[in-house]
Amino acid sequence: MEKDSIQAYSKRITQANRTELVVITYEIIIEHVENAKKYYENRKEFVNSLEKAQSFLKELMVSLDFNYEISSNLLSLYIFINKQLIEAKQKNTCEMLSRIQGMLESLLSSFKQVSEQDKSAPLMQNTQKVYAGLTYGKEDINEMSVMADSKNRGFRA
């Protein structure tokens, strides 16, 4: 995963509620599966990407709330996906990765719909709000990001 992606996910995580965190986790898993397909020729990067996808998948598994019936169905699906990732690593093949990615994208779209309806507060309470914008220079456009409580806000000569 690229440094820019990590920073973007980090900012989103600090402002996310419970269902948004699930959406972000799915997006991260999908990105690692895409990276595995991209790095298929490089065995080390291929395996590393699949292992990272597995670690985030395990986070989804352990965070399931079994008071809801759907949790056992999701667990079965997560176990199946994990087995497919293990098989892809062992056989050094990416044939099943497209199918896995399709399943994950289907789950992602479902959780996105749930996330849009969830109006609960972010889980992380003591975080700074991040404001971002563009400033226009004489010959270019500059991106600017400022923390809400930052003492360095505003124009400095």
Rank of each mutant, 00 (worst) to 15 (best):
S109F: 06
Q90R: 00
L108D: 12
K129N: 10
F56M: 09
S115A: 15
S109K: 12
V23F: 04
Q125M: 04
L60Q: 10
K3C: 00
K112R: 12
A53Y: 02
E87W: 14
L77F: 06
I28S: 06
M147P: 04
E2R: 08
L134C: 04
E139V: 14
E69A: 11
R153Q: 13
R43K: 06
Y78V: 01
T135F: 05
E87H: 15
A53H: 01
S71D: 06
L57P: 15
K58G: 03
M61Q: 12
S110A: 14
E27T: 03
L74P: 04
R43T: 01
L134S: 11
Q15F: 00
L107S: 13
A157Y: 11
V23Q: 06
I24W: 12
I81W: 09
L77P: 11
L104H: 04
F111G: 14
S106Y: 05
K3Y: 00
S10I: 07
S55P: 13
L85H: 01
N142C: 10
R153D: 06
E51K: 12
T127S: 04
E2P: 08
E51S: 08
F80I: 05
I86L: 13
K37D: 09
N73S: 07
E20V: 02
A132Q: 14
T14A: 09
N48V: 06
N48S: 10
R156Y: 01
I70R: 15
Q90T: 00
N67M: 02
A53W: 02
V62W: 02
M1F: 08
G154M: 02
T19F: 08
I28C: 11
Q15I: 02
E34F: 09
S145I: 14
K138P: 15
S76V: 06
E31H: 09
I70Q: 15
F46W: 03
L77N: 11
E45I: 00
E59F: 12
S110V: 14
E45A: 02
T135W: 03
Y131N: 10
E95Q: 10
S106F: 01
I100H: 03
S71M: 09
R43W: 02
A157V: 13
M96Y: 04
Q54N: 14
L123H: 01
L75C: 10
I6G: 10
I29M: 09
F155I: 09
Q54W: 09
K38Q: 00
I100G: 03
L134Y: 08
Y131P: 01
E27H: 07
S145W: 05
R18I: 00
L74H: 03
D140T: 01
I13M: 14
N42K: 04
M96C: 09
E69G: 07
F155N: 05
F66E: 06
Q54G: 14
L57V: 05
L50W: 00
M147H: 01
E34N: 14
S72L: 00
N42Y: 04
I29H: 13
N126K: 03
L123R: 01
R18T: 04
K119L: 12
I13V: 12
